[in-house]
Amino acid sequence: MNLTLKIWRQKDSNAKGQMVDYKVTDISEHMSFLEMMDVLNEQLINAGEEPVAFDHDCREGICGMCSMYINGEAHGPDRGVTTCQLHMRMFKDGDTITIEPFRAAAFPVIKDLVVDRTAFDRIQHAGGYISVNTSGNTQDANAIPISKHAADEAMDAATCIGCGACVATCKNSSAMLFVGAKVSQYALLPQGQVEAADRVRNMVAQMDLEGFGNCTNTGACEIECPKGISLDNIARMNRELMKAQF
């Protein structure tokens, strides 16, 4: 199929940037979206132009790098997938596709479609871990009984890949689905209890410091999240923070 692409081009973090139109031809519907972008970039390189910079790594939906806002949705129109898992069969011959970087003041653009998501790393450093002595006599995790229900819910929360689609989608650029998932995966397990109060306080404080917005419960993040992280995790984080006051 033949497509028109409207892509955000920005030389570096200080440049102004603008939308630029491109044409690609003979795109197979079996290609992934990133493969289509590869075709465009080869075309640009052959013409002596600067290729479009975009983030990617695993190309199988687990690293969370492939941040693109496609036709007004994070990771494009399909559900439960990242951009690398999005197939070109979701589009029609002759379509115009708008491709922008994830937008949030806390995710500044580095170049073209590449944004800086180290704010998420700093939130994780603030408390997204448990302090375990790994000297060699660590207790076997299976020695601690955990209910199937709690284990399942913690595992669901832990599937968050830190892609940032929730922030990109949210009209408030709120990071609460991400932080809610990271808080929940420990809050649900006995190993997470010891540091629970400090964890949620420090992670929320870091989230606010990074300049993410306030959740208004539109629920858009949950719909666009490639891993189906539930809004219930935000409610749990709110409860954890309230509990941490006493």
Partner: peptide
């Protein structure tokens, strides 16, 4: 917190 607005945003999708 949003900073730059999207050129195209499909809010009704979600």
């Amino acid at each position: 917190a949003k900073g730059v607005a999207y050129a195209k945003n499909n809010g009704a999708a979600n």
